[in-house]
Computed example of a mutant assay.
Amino acid sequence: MLTISKEFHFSASHQLAHLPTDHPCSRMHGHNYIVVIELSAASDALTEAGFVRDYRDLAELKDWIDTNLDHRHLNDTVPGRNPSAEHIAMWVHETWSRQLPELTAVRVSETPKTWAEYRPS
């Protein structure tokens, strides 16, 4: 199995529900997010050029992130979910897994020391 990844960045605000009122994440705040997608394929499933997927094919995902997530309030953008890093990772995977069948995981960081990863079983 071969794996590639690509990193994307966006800045956005959110306010998390279901937390105590004194929890800092219950107030509106923002982050400089990092999204890393992971794509995997068996060695016999590589493209003729020897790629899991050409990185240039991911330009549409970058455009989608820039349009739908960058400088947005995620409570208004991530449909039907409390916009935690975990839910954002799941939503990105669900949104893009049909278009990118090699997509095996999505990681989301809100701060330099925190990451959430969605890797469907």
Rank of each mutant, 00 (worst) to 15 (best):
A59V: 02
R72T: 12
L61E: 02
N75E: 05
L74G: 04
D54T: 15
V52N: 03
R56D: 14
V52L: 03
L69T: 10
D70F: 04
Y55G: 00
R56T: 15
V78Q: 01
L74D: 04
L74F: 06
V78P: 00
R56S: 15
E60H: 13
N68S: 12
D76L: 04
P79M: 09
V52F: 01
N75G: 10
V78T: 00
G80H: 10
D66H: 07
V78D: 00
N68L: 11
D57Q: 05
T77A: 14
P79N: 07
G80W: 10
D76G: 04
A85I: 02
I65A: 05
L61N: 03
N75I: 07
G80R: 11
T77Q: 15
R81G: 02
D57C: 02
L58W: 06
V52I: 03
R81Y: 04
R81W: 01
N68K: 13
R53E: 05
D70E: 05
S84M: 05
T67L: 12
G80V: 10
P83M: 09
K62N: 15
D63W: 01
H73G: 00
P83L: 06
S84H: 07
R56G: 14
R53Y: 00
E60D: 14
G50R: 13
D57P: 00
K62M: 15
